[in-house]
């Protein structure tokens, strides 16, 4: 009888110590600065250097589009997220360097797995994966990014040097 009682007390004591040790961690961190941030009120200042976020279609320094509508990104894309329809440049309407440009360029950001193959395949360095990771929308349609959404607003605004050689 006594033995049984003693072992029960010992068990409770062991459990109590374990709980206190666990709570010790909790209390220790209670008084440290948190490592999480209060997203979306707070945001990170920088992502890792090789981070792959939203796509941009980049421009040359003179504002010409780098994309020539070759569709290599379309064929390399493992999730078939890209649609390109090319057209011919005319002297009055010169969009890119060369005879061909992308009249339509769409990326389905829901399908995209951010592998970066498109950037690797691109012969002119037109398509790049940027830093932006806030890719959410209320409808599926809004997640199909069209050419005006993808084209960087001014040369270099995606963070890539407009003068870079590929």
């Amino acid at each position: 009888m006594n033995d049984r009682r003693r072992s029960t007390i010992l068990r409770y004591a062991r459990q109590g110590v374990a709980m206190l040790r666990g709570l010790g961690v909790t209390f220790r961190y209670l008084f440290k600065r948190p490592i999480t941030i209060r997203y979306p009120e707070e945001k990170r200042t920088a992502v890792q250097p090789r981070f792959k976020g939203r796509h941009w279609l980049t421009l040359y320094g003179d504002g010409m589009e780098r994309c020539v509508g070759c569709e290599l990104c379309v064929i390399v894309c493992p999730s078939q997220a890209i649609y390109v329809k090319a057209a011919e440049n005319t002297p009055e309407h010169q969009v890119s360097k060369g005879e061909r440009y992308a009249a339509e360029f769409q990326i389905n950001e829901l399908r995209c797995i951010f592998c970066g193959f498109c950037e690797e395949a691109c012969p002119t360095g037109a398509i790049v994966l940027g830093r932006e990771y806030e890719l959410a929308g209320y409808t599926r349609e809004s997640m199909i990014y069209t050419k005006p959404m993808l084209t960087e607003p001014y040369p270099g605004s995606s963070g890539r040097d407009p003068q870079r050689e590929v």
């Binding site: 064929i75 090319a86 057209a87």
Partner: peptide, 9 residues
Amino acid sequence: YRFVSRPWD
């Protein structure tokens, strides 16, 4: 057919 499509399309 000028620039309208690629064989893989």
